[in-house]
Write a protein that binds this DNA or RNA. Structure first.
Lengths: 232, 232
DNA sequence: TCCATTTCGAGAGCACCGCTCTCGAAGAAG
DNA sequence: CTTCTTCGAGAGCGGTGCTCTCGAAATGGA
C-alpha cells in the first residue's frame, strides 16, 4: 500500500468536488443535469470535465451509486438502532428512514426510482446497492420467521410462481416461505409507491398530515405481513 | 352550431397529426421528446410547430391528457365489463387493465407516473383525468360497502388523520369509512408500485412469471381490503 | 370581384446542450 | 535537465427549444 501521489490526491479531490457540485445542481435544477453548468460553477470549461468522467452518464452513474448507498445506510442504521426483537418497530424504523431520506433528497430519489433516463442503462454495479433497502425489509421478516415470531400466511403461492419466489429468496439468501416473502415484497412495493406518490405530488395535496398517513399505511402492510404489534 | 371552416378542420387535423407523430417518437426515443424531430418527420421546419403548440411543454400536456384518458377508459371499461356484484372480479379486472395499458404504452406511463419533468408543472385540467383510475378502484369499494358486501376494517384511523381521509372521501364523492378508504388507497398505491417496478425494471428481472406475480400481489391487496372472494 | 386581414410555413438566428479534437502549459519521473 | 504524462482551454460539430421576420396563401367583407 503505497501512499497516493499528490496528483492522485488532487484528482480524487476534483472528482469529489465535481460530484458535489453536480449533486447541488441536481437538487435545484432537477434531473436534467448539465455538464456545462457544473463546469461553469467550478470555473472550468466544459471539456475539462471529461478528464474525470468520460460522459455525462458516467457522472450520473456515480451519483446514483452514492445515492443508493446513502439510502441503504439510512435504512440499515435505522433498522439496527431499535430493539431487534421488536419486528414491528424495526419495520417502522426502516420505512420511516427510507421516507425521510427520500424527502430530504427528492432529486436523488427521482434519479433512483423515477422513470429511467431514455438513453441510460444502469450498469451492473448498481444492482447490489439498489437491493440494500428491500433486503433490509425482508431481513426483518427473515429474523422474525427464524425466531418463530412471524407465522407464514395461510395462503399458498400457486406453483408456477412458488418456485420462482423461492428461487428469489435463495438468491437473496433469505430463508422464508414463498407466501411470506411475497408479502414482504408487497410491503416494499407499497413503501416505494407511498414515497413516490408523496414526492411526485399526486394524492397527498389533500392530505396535510403526511406523517400520520404514511405511518398508517405502513402499519397496514405490517398487518398484512403479520408483524406482531409492538408491546406497549 | 356552425360547421367548422375548412381552415379550422385542416388545423385540427394538423394538431392530431402532430400528436400522433409525437406519440410515436415518445414510444421509440423515450421521454425526451424533440420538437425538431417531430417537425422533421412531418416535413416541416421546427418553427412551424409553434403555430399549433406554443411550447414543447404544451405538446407534452396534450399527450399527457390523452394518455390519462386512455388509461381511464381502459380501467373503467374493464371494470364495467364484469359482474358488478363480484367485487373481487371487478378489482382484478380494473387492476389488470391498468397494467395491460401500461405495458402496452410504457413511455406514456412514464410520462404520467414517472419522475416529474424538472421545469414542467402539470396544469389543473390534468387532475380530473388523473383521478379516474383511483376513482374506479375506490368506486368498487363504495359499491361493495353500500351493498353490505364489504365490511369496514376492525381498526380505526386515529384522529388527526381520520377527518382528513373523510374529507378526501367527500371530495371524491365516495361514502366510505375512513379506515376502508385508507385501505383502498393502499391498494391504489400498491397497483402503481407494481406497475412501476415491472416497467422500470427493478425486481422482476428474476421473476419471469410476471402475470402470476401481479395477480398474486393484487389478490393480497384485495384480501387486505376485505373484498369477498369470487364464487367459483 | 377586389382588397384588407388573417393564417401559416420557411428561414435565419440566439443561447444552450453533449461531446471531440488539438494545443500548450505544468507537473512527474528518469 | 530532459522526456513523458496529465490536464485545462479553446474551437468546433451537430443537436435542442424558442423567437423573429418575411412572403405566400387562404379567408372574408365591401
Amino acid at each position: 500500500m503505497v501512499a497516493p501521489s499528490l496528483r492522485a490526491r488532487v484528482r480524487a479531490g476534483m472528482i469529489d468536488e465535481i460530484k458535489a457540485v453536480a449533486r447541488r445542481h441536481l437538487a435545484t435544477d432537477g434531473a436534467n443535469l448539465s455538464l456545462r453548468a457544473v463546469a461553469r460553477d467550478m470555473g472550468m470549461v466544459s471539456s475539462a470535465i471529461y478528464r474525470y468522467f468520460p460522459s455525462r452518464d458516467d457522472l450520473l452513474t456515480a451519483l446514483i451509486l452514492e445515492a443508493y448507498d446513502a439510502l441503504g445506510d439510512a435504512v440499515e442504521t435505522a433498522d439496527a438502532a431499535v430493539d431487534q426483537a421488536d419486528l414491528r418497530e424495526r419495520w417502522h424504523a426502516a420505512c420511516r428512514a427510507a421516507r425521510a431520506w427520500s424527502l430530504a433528497h427528492p432529486a436523488e430519489y427521482a434519479l433512483l426510482y423515477g422513470s429511467p433516463v431514455p438513453g441510460y442503462a444502469a450498469p451492473d454495479d448498481t444492482v447490489a446497492p439498489a437491493q440494500r433497502p428491500p433486503l433490509t425489509l425482508v431481513g426483518i421478516l427473515r429474523d422474525g420467521f427464524a425466531a418463530g415470531r412471524l407465522q407464514p400466511p395461510a395462503e399458498e403461492v400457486p406453483e408456477p410462481l412458488r418456485a420462482e419466489v423461492a428461487e428469489l429468496g435463495a438468491l437473496l439468501s433469505v430463508d422464508l416461505p414463498p407466501a411470506l416473502l411475497a408479502r414482504g415484497m408487497a410491503g416494499w412495493t407499497q413503501l416505494f409507491g407511498l414515497i413516490s406518490f408523496e414526492l411526485f405530488g399526486r394524492i397527498n395535496r389533500t392530505l396535510p398530515h403526511r406523517d400520520e398517513y404514511f405511518d398508517h399505511q405502513i402499519n397496514l402492510m405490517a398487518d398484512l405481513i403479520g408483524l406482531p404489534r409492538s408491546a406497549g
